[in-house]
Design a binder for these strands. Structure first.
Lengths: 183, 183
DNA sequence: TGGAACGTTTTGAAGTTTCCAAACGCCGGA
DNA sequence: TCCGGCGTTTGGAAACTTCAAAACGTTCCA
């Protein structure tokens, strides 16, 4: 349980802001940020003292984060306590959330298209047209997400392999061939 | 100003739910949903009667939707009125929002990495490691988003060309070569 | 069989959001 | 210049969210 440095404090707060802007709970972001700065698992009471929030909300937030796979229950020094760490696939798991909503959007378009098709009413041509646009868009997006998913797994594997054999070489050797990043 | 059919009513409500779950305003979703069912532009008062909400909130919501490019001011029958329609690139513009947050995430990782690097304190190794993971993830994601962006523009162009030459052929002829979609 | 050490649930207060109703301001046309 | 139609802003009520404090339940150990 290392007390965060000032920079790490800022990091934690930024994660709070980030999660808040996503429509999630600020406290959940604070917890995730905190765990990213800790090399050892943190207990509930640890979070209470490190974050300065009270136990009730933290208990609930941590359970939720565990449910959605952003945080992981792990073993720690004291037996009776629950210890948590950032999930090793935190970012990827969070992404899978987005992927699910993309799929939901596509399915929504398809569901309504089917409904309109069997109704055969007139005056709904524009709706049908827009739903087809929507379906096409999210179909394409879904396929990109799946490709991304596969690629990331590959990159992550390379990263693990690299760490195992040639530890300590400063920069990442395993960066994939990406298109040039703007800015 | 066509009163939505029952199915279209459902569609509008679902858009409300969707936007709400994104952390946006439910009313904004209702408006977007409504405009997707209308083949003619709708005035503010039109939305009031079609949605059954009052004018104040609609005025604000519509302005915001216009700002972020999900809705477009267009000309309509009566001169003094403001008419709105769903933006032709609604889904794409919404996606660009996501792309911006991905970029922000990458930049956040880089910003803190730079800060930690120049501080040279110890006990922050885990934070650095996690931030490198974060950076790598969002770098890859960003490059996929850019590829998707380019591809979508191409698909959209094909779609327009197709519509212009061979109108009315039931199904989309311009679907791109995507990987197989699950389910 | 206590009782200490936990995590969870409940309660209530404070803040925030969301909405309607109504007042307001602006712009054209009589 | 007044008046009617329109969008915007304001005020306030109701619902919801977020959090701390404290009561509660459970488990392990003396």
């Amino acid at each position: 349980m290392n007390r965060p440095s000032p920079t790490e404090e800022d990091l934690i707060q930024e994660f709070g802001n980030l999660y808040e802007s996503y429509g999630l709970k600020r406290l959940e972001g604070l917890i995730v940020g905190l765990l990213l700065t800790q090399d050892e698992p943190v207990s509930l009471d640890g979070m209470v003292t490190l974050l300065g929030h009270s136990k009730g909300p933290i208990s609930i937030a941590v359970r939720r984060l565990d449910d959605i796979g952003l945080v992981k229950k792990v073993n720690g020094p004291v037996n009776r306590r629950n210890y948590y760490a950032a999930h090793p696939d935190l970012f990827y798991n969070n992404f899978q959330f987005n992927m699910a909503t993309v799929r939901k959007n596509r399915q929504m378009a398809e569901r309504f298209l089917a409904r309109l098709e069997e109704e055969e009413e007139n005056g709904q041509a524009e709706t049908v047209e827009n739903l087809k646009h929507m379906r096409l868009f999210y179909q394409l997006m879904e396929s990109f997400y799946q490709d991304f998913s596969a690629q990331w797994r590959k990159v992550k594997q390379q990263r693990l392999d690299g760490d195992a054999s040639e530890k300590e070489n400063g920069e990442d050797a395993s960066r994939p061939e990406t298109s040039a990043l703007s800015e």
